Amino acid sequence: MNYFEKVLTSATAKLLNQDLWVHIGETILKIIIVLVVAQIFIKIAKAAIRNIFRVRSKSPLRISERRENTLHKLLENIVTYVVYFVALITILSLLTIDVKGLLAGAGIVGLAVGFGAQSLVRDIISGFFIIFEDQFSVGDYVGIGKYVGTVEEIGLRITKIKSWTGELHILPNGRITEVTNYSIHNSIAVVDINIPYDGNIEKAEKVIEDLLPIMSNKYEEIVNPPELLGVQQLGTSDIMLRVIAETEPMRHWYIARMLRKEIKMALDNNGIKAPFPKLVMYSRNEDADHYNHRVHRGE
């Protein structure tokens, strides 16, 4: 029997070895069980997180809803990553792979990569402080640089902002240096009303002042009754009156549109019309002819 025949015979014997196939089957079954247990654990953990936040929503010690949404998604992602990592380590152990040596090598490689990926490290650190300091949360309407929109997602590395026209902007957290958050405090709706010079200003102010208290009861988004500040500007053909109203965060645009409509209808019902531009024609030739005529008469 030559060498190749011996190798073939040995390989055939191993393939026909019942204990080997039993071991392979047990290993595959254990891997399946690990994956199933990981999925079940993730679902249980996510349900527990949802219940915790649901209980906190009824507690006097609850945090703001906007921050709850952010922490909720972040905790679910962390649980998923941790469980999958533990499952991967367990599967490698079942495959008789030296996990300790692999982790040690991964640590050295990670250290080397860290020096070359400083921007990635900066993004993660910045993301941590954004969440820790509650600079903004999921659902907030913010302005970051030239981008303005609603925060769709906050991660440790990137932040997603969706503009009102539908564009989704993905920003690395390390590049977020200045943030304007429009969703924390109440907003102010500013409405300017133009009245013609020949109109009755006192009557217009009286109509508006009688209307404004009703608006608080009609629109629940108004926090405090609207206020008529008075004459804001003297234009070329009209007088501008200004009305302001404190509203819930990000509801000032809607309330401003409603106030314009209500004030316009009230003014029309009281006979106060909107101003219109006036055009005056001036002819220099006619003025010159009149001057010459007066000189000719000796005036």
Rank of each mutant, 00 (worst) to 15 (best):
F129T: 13
R122W: 14
V82R: 00
D238S: 10
N17D: 04
D198Y: 09
F129V: 08
T236R: 05
S187L: 06
S64T: 11
I239W: 02
E153G: 07
V148Q: 07
F115P: 03
Q118W: 15
K162T: 12
V207L: 00
K278Q: 13
V7Y: 15
V82M: 05
N181M: 00
L171M: 09
W253E: 08
P277C: 01
A256M: 02
E133R: 14
V109S: 07
E178I: 13
F129K: 10
D268F: 07
G199A: 14
L156G: 08
Q232W: 08
T80G: 09
K14W: 14
A189R: 01
A104T: 15
I222T: 02
L212K: 03
L259A: 02
R260V: 03
Q233C: 01
N270G: 06
I255L: 01
R257P: 01
P213R: 01
E167I: 10
D123M: 01
V295L: 15
G105R: 14
I170T: 06
A245T: 04
I188F: 11
E286T: 14
L171I: 15
E209V: 06
G166C: 07
T12N: 13
L168S: 12
E26W: 15
T27G: 04
I32K: 11
R157T: 12
L88Q: 03
L228Q: 05
G105D: 09
P249S: 01
V7F: 13
I158W: 05
T90K: 10
Y282R: 14
A266Y: 06
V113M: 10
Y141V: 04
S283G: 05
G271H: 06
I33K: 10
V37Q: 03
D210Q: 11
Q233T: 08
I195K: 02
F276H: 15
N173P: 06
S126Y: 10
A47W: 10
I24G: 10
R66C: 02
G174M: 10
V207G: 00
Q18G: 11
D19F: 05
Q118D: 14
F53E: 04
E248T: 14
V151F: 00
E220C: 03
T80L: 15
G116V: 14
M250H: 05
G25C: 06
I63N: 13
V34M: 03
N292K: 09
L92T: 09
M240L: 10
R294V: 07
T150L: 05
S93Y: 15
R257C: 01
H290R: 15
M281Y: 13
V82I: 13
G298P: 02
I125M: 14
I40A: 08
Y254C: 02
P196L: 00
K264G: 12
A245M: 00
L267W: 01
R175V: 09
I52A: 11
D268K: 12
A38W: 04
A189N: 04
V113F: 10
E205A: 08
Y81R: 08
R175A: 11
K14Y: 14
